[in-house]
Design a protein around this nucleic acid. Structure first.
Lengths: 109, 109
DNA sequence: CAGGATCCTCGAAGATACTG
DNA sequence: CAGTATCTTCGAGGATCCTG
């Protein structure tokens, strides 16, 4: 986009976020990380997701090679499974710093 | 939210994403990870961000204890710096799997 | 059951202009 | 320089109804 990459706007971390930074992708990946699942299983396992968003999220993940579909059953591809480590990093950070986050928010509120 | 946490909708990974999953937070964190910076420095270092979004993002990060402000200079807190590892994981995954991602997308396009 | 099609809302983000 | 204030657009995501 820009003349040089002196700018950070196209930081590679954002590539990953573009893939899983939306509301549901990470949750779907975690659910499929447990094991392959049928559409209806995913709906109740995840909870709170609409059918529209589940379908849409699965298709997006499929287009990007993270999920493969066979009949109504979805599973992570190897590429998708490789994301579980990243998701773990996200979750690990949140759990590790729960207290610090609550402190920070309450001291401003 | 739900009766039990049998559902994944409140997956802890989403806590982190709620913090840095937006368009600019990660980029600001990376820029401040290099060193503390003034507002105007951030604007040109990042590139493509509007003043409104920079201010807004900085304030959000400050509210959550990730960034501290002194005069017009912003810096990461320890909590903020602890996120650099997570950001690295995101960026690392993207760089490691660039080819696989391009393949997947082109084979569907 | 596994979706697709439609309509609607709401907030993220940009553009622009103004201020101490 | 370091913001604040407005206006607007655009798309994510929910709700509802329809279908093989």
């Amino acid at each position: 986009m820009s003349d040089f990459d002196v700018f950070l706007a196209d930081c590679p971390a954002r590539t990953t976020l573009a893939l899983v930074g939306d509301t549901w992708s990470v949750v779907v990946i975690v659910a499929l990380g447990e094991r392959p699942r049928r559409y209806s299983e995913l709906l109740e396992r995840i909870g709170g997701i609409s059918k529209k968003m589940l379908t849409q999220t699965l298709h997006k993940l499929e287009r990007n090679g993270l999920v493969e579909r066979e009949a109504p059953v979805y599973a992570l591809t190897d590429l998708g499974a490789s994301l579980l480590g990243v998701v773990g990093a996200l979750a690990g950070w949140a759990e590790e710093h729960t207290d610090a986050l609550l402190d920070a928010q309450s001291s401003v509120a």
